[in-house]
């Protein structure tokens, strides 16, 4: 785990962020493992990120989940040095970010990665198109060229007709579409999204989640997605890291987390959710048994079980679960009932 994996899009080793005076004294000391309030009382420091290591493969959606105050925002800002980490190393496509010069860092921010914020962070005095073109403008791109580029991204996120509107004229969901478009405009290799939908209504949030799934399919960016919402994590993440008090307590696929919670903290999380609400058909899909009917309906693997249950229960035959055009397995009405029964105890 100490060697960087240079083929990863992102490779993080031993990352620390300690707020307060003399932060380097805390890193790796016994104080670091004290509970937050005790550490604060004793030294005046907050260890917001503690010894974190992980890898994100190219094209992967990596979700970081945790309660508010667990250090998610600090972690994601350390990866792009919006917050200067106290210790550790971060490689982005094999390049060490933490030793990059200010100029190199700005270059990387302009082209290699981009960020979407919880509170959108749109520039209120600029129209939608000029918001989206802002990073291109910073890059020194000519106006006509950057507007052309911005227009194409506007289409990608479904904002046609709004290019001359101002942020204050848009709903929250629309504003975050602008945020997404702005992050996509520079064609980055990695996107960081810090709770992008937490400020939105639940209904809009669902739309936007589907939008991210669609965009990810279309543009195939590597994404680090921060959320405090388990169902969002389950829906979007190829892998999920669960954070608590600045450290990662478990990391794995959604199915692994539900099936084998590492400790009672994670188990508590998982108990509170109904699997049928968060897990997708991928979780239930199994190879067809002998004599089972495989001529049923086809459903995408990322369909939430609850949403699929009506169809499956009404259908006479088990449904086929399809992922990327390939058959993943089947799900029968018995599988659904078993899961629902489990949840009600």
């Amino acid at each position: 785990m100490n060697q960087h994996n240079t083929s990863s899009a992102i490779s993080v080793r031993g990352l620390w962020k300690v707020f307060g005076e003399n932060p380097e004294n805390i890193v790796g000391s016994t104080d670091a493992s004290l509970p937050k309030a005790e550490l604060l009382a004793k030294t005046g420091n907050t260890a917001a990120v503690r010894d974190i290591s992980f890898d994100v493969a190219p094209g992967e959606v990596f979700v970081v989940m945790g309660l508010s105050g667990s250090g998610k925002s600090t972690l994601v800002r350390c990866l792009t040095r919006l917050i200067e980490p106290t210790a550790g190393s971060v490689l982005l496509n094999g390049e060490d970010i933490l030793t990059a010069s200010p100029t190199r860092l700005r270059e990387l921010r302009k082209s290699a990665f981009s960020m979407v914020f919880q509170h959108f962070g749109l520039l209120p005095h600029r129209s939608v198109i000029d918001n989206i073109a802002y990073s291109l403008e910073i890059n020194g791109m000519k106006k006509a060229e950057r507007h052309k580029k911005a227009e194409s991204v506007i289409e990608l996120v479904g904002l046609q007709g709004y290019s001359q509107a101002y942020p204050e004229q848009l709903s929250g969901g629309m504003q975050q579409r602008v945020g997404l478009a702005r992050a996509l405009a520079v064609d980055p290799q990695v996107m960081f999204l810090d709770e992008p939908f937490s400020a939105l209504d639940p209904l809009i949030r669902r739309d936007m989640q589907s939008e991210v799934i669609r965009l990810h399919k279309e543009v195939g960016k590597t994404m680090v997605f921060i959320t405090h919402d388990l169902s969002e994590a389950m829906k979007l993440g190829d892998r999920i890291a669960i954070m608590r008090d600045g450290a990662i307590v478990q990391m794995g696929t959604p199915e692994e987390l539900v099936a084998k919670p590492a400790d009672s903290y994670v188990a508590d999380f998982m108990r509170d959710i109904s699997k049928s609400h968060v897990l997708t058909l991928k979780y239930l899909a199994r190879p067809a048994g002998a004599g089972e009917d495989t001529s049923g309906l086809e459903l995408p693997a990322e369909t939430i079980i609850l949403e699929a249950s009506k169809v499956i229960l009404e259908s006479r035959r088990p449904v086929k679960v399809i992922e990327n055009g390939k058959l993943l397995g089947i799900v029968s009405d018995q599988d659904i009932l078993r899961l629902l029964a489990e949840e009600t105890v």
Binding site: T80, L82, R109, S114, F117, I138
Partner: peptide, 9 residues
């Protein structure tokens, strides 16, 4: 917005 601007280089 200020943080966003910094994040874009």
């Amino acid at each position: 917005p200020i943080e966003a601007s910094t994040s874009m280089g």
